[in-house]
Simulated assay, not measured.
Amino acid sequence: MRLSSAAFAADASIPQRYTCDGPGVSPPLAWTRPPAGTRSLALVVTDPDAPDPKAPRMTWVHWVIYDLPPHAGALPTGAATPPEARDGLNSWKRAGYGGPCPPIGRHRYFFRLYALDTTLKFPAPPDRARLLAAMHGHVLAEATLMGTYRRVR
């Protein structure tokens, strides 16, 4: 399984359109067919360089989606969560995509897509930690796309 974006290449800069310096819409994402036995997909987007890449203190979560249908194959620009899928909570404690907005320096943003052998149920939208804990032992494959961003000043 591979994850890509038509908006930016792996290890390249994320265009301003997908950040707080632009409209902040989510970038388009596409993935190859997940492995046999996949019942759902989960997407987590993180910035491990917060707040300063020279002295990171936390991983900031920008997007959490789970129970994506395995046949979906893509999320378009500015995607709303598909009806079959569910939103988790980002570090702003809200559902949906929050674009890169690093306070200092160039940060790395990891888009991670997980193929799971199950669907997940939560009584309330999970944060990244709860989602990863529930996924434990159910990950069939993982694909990562990393992009970078430095704020326009």
Score class of each variant (00 low, 15 high):
54 K>S: 11
72 A>G: 05
151 R>P: 03
102 P>Q: 15
84 E>F: 04
69 P>N: 11
88 G>T: 10
152 V>N: 05
58 M>C: 03
61 V>E: 13
67 D>S: 14
110 F>Y: 02
110 F>W: 01
38 T>R: 11
49 D>F: 08
104 I>A: 11
50 A>W: 13
67 D>K: 03
70 P>Q: 13
110 F>H: 07
131 L>G: 12
134 A>R: 10
119 T>P: 10
84 E>L: 06
147 G>E: 09
99 G>L: 02
53 P>N: 08
60 W>N: 03
95 A>Y: 00
141 A>K: 03
26 S>H: 10
98 G>N: 14
105 G>S: 03
149 Y>V: 12
89 L>Y: 09
18 Y>F: 10
44 V>I: 15
84 E>W: 04
3 L>T: 04
90 N>V: 00
87 D>T: 06
90 N>S: 01
120 L>C: 09
40 S>G: 05
8 F>I: 06
107 H>N: 04
73 G>D: 13
123 P>T: 12
55 A>W: 06
114 Y>K: 02
2 R>K: 15
103 P>C: 10
68 L>K: 13
113 L>W: 12
65 I>Y: 12
72 A>C: 07
38 T>C: 13
131 L>W: 04
74 A>M: 13
37 G>Q: 09
83 P>L: 04
82 P>I: 07
103 P>A: 14
89 L>T: 00
123 P>A: 10
41 L>K: 12
114 Y>T: 08
74 A>C: 15
14 I>S: 00
143 A>C: 05
94 R>D: 00
